[in-house]
Simulated scan of single mutants.
Amino acid sequence: MEFDFLQPLNNEVLKVIEGLSSQHLGSKIVLHTKEQFPDLNKIKIAIIGVLENRGDENAVADIDLSNIRKELYGLFPGNWDASIADLGDIHAGNSTSDTYFALKKVVSSLIKKKIIPIVIGGSQDLTYALYRAYDDLEQMVNLVSIDSKFDFGKEKEEISSDSYLTKIIIEEPNNLFNYCNIGYQTYYNSQEEIDLVEKLFFDGYRLGEVSNNIAIAEPVFRDADLVSVDLNSVKSSDSGNFTTFTPNGFNGKEICSLSRYAGISDKVSLFGIFNQNNSKQESVLIAQIIWYFIEGYHYRSKEYPFGNKENYLKYIIPLEEEELIFYKSNKTDRWWIEIPFISNGHNKLRRNTLLPCSYDEYLGACNQEVPERWWKAQRKNIV
């Protein structure tokens, strides 16, 4: 049984939860204890810890997620009705591949049950195991990473938190349809890596772009399956991480806003937070990031898969050589653009015929400007 990989919460955390009032979040979730395992038939969101950080050479010796749980469960929930469970921790295996295997099995089983896992790591190479969890689901995967780096490595380099993306791209079966990085900082990435992102028709948004207009990230999350957060993307003055000092990055408000965008997306089925440093200060921020993801989940509009077109306004924009078709939701005022489907043997791509976009991209099309993400998505359909 795949859930045998999960170890119950420790007594220290359970004791803190017992001392909370009935109004705190910790009193409203189902816990994995030595005596019982939650009934998953009643669960919508599952929190999982993974005590594996061998992929990060700068990591602290041992991972302790107790502070994160104490901070999270000491918060008050919003007007939430979804059942939440804490399924405990996956301990590090004899090798990192053992940990990947356990995490993949647990997460895959949860997604099949329509449960959204929130994974608290460890090092960010665990994103590779999360990506592999989709292998049994027979679908293409859109990966969004909130990160200051692209995390490319050499082809034969051992997988790590700084190189996991290369393994995702080159390894078969290749189910990656799109990768998008939100918040990269140019001086942390070689020009060769930046060019490679363009060559592969992937997307990247610089830190300054997103900080100046955080709403540009919303359509990206709306099209994501898996969201991976590297806490090093948050500046140290806001995260409290002075072990790996980061002078520039997202502030606390911005990273929580991005987390809420991920939660509100009807399509996101897996959320991971990685590269934490065990500090109590950073635990406060991580708890709030998780809180905002759950808050976003409760405001999902159920617009994916794309529903009855009677609920949308259709806009046709003629260009010189073709026409662009936009849809605007009457319910949420959100926008989509149609991608002409070209059969290339990948029937799994059929679900990508509607691409989330922004109102600004619609206005750009009215001025004969083709949205860059539309162009890249269409190129993926052709090649």
Rank of each mutant, 00 (worst) to 15 (best):
L258A: 09
D64W: 03
K15V: 01
R351M: 06
D360A: 04
L72S: 00
W374Y: 14
S109R: 14
F201K: 07
R222G: 04
I325K: 09
D360K: 09
S259D: 00
D4A: 07
D203P: 01
V268N: 07
V197H: 00
I337R: 02
V141T: 07
G93A: 03
Y304L: 06
E57V: 09
R54Q: 15
C256A: 10
P117W: 07
S66H: 00
G74N: 12
A217F: 05
S343P: 00
I43Q: 01
V370D: 09
C366W: 00
V370E: 14
L143E: 04
Q139P: 07
C180V: 15
I339M: 01
Y164V: 09
F245Q: 09
P305G: 06
Y315F: 13
F326P: 01
P340T: 10
K44V: 00
K44H: 14
L137K: 08
L75W: 01
H298A: 02
I159W: 05
K112P: 03
K105G: 05
H24C: 04
N11K: 13
V16Q: 04
A215Y: 03
D64T: 05
E218A: 06
D98L: 08
L176W: 09
F274I: 14
H91A: 11
D136E: 14
V220E: 03
V107W: 00
F271S: 00
E295R: 12
A82Q: 15
G263D: 01
V383N: 14
S358H: 06
N277V: 06
E171N: 15
A262Y: 09
A129N: 10
Y297Q: 13
G272I: 02
E198R: 13
I29W: 01
I214E: 07
L65Q: 04
C366A: 06
K156H: 13
P77E: 07
N330Y: 13
G272K: 02
E254H: 12
Q139R: 14
A215T: 13
K302F: 15
I216M: 11
Y100T: 06
F245T: 07
V227E: 00
T243W: 05
G364K: 05
V383Q: 12
S123T: 11
I168T: 15
E12I: 08
V119L: 08
P173S: 10
L65C: 05
T186E: 13
N330R: 13
S228N: 01
E320F: 10
C357R: 03
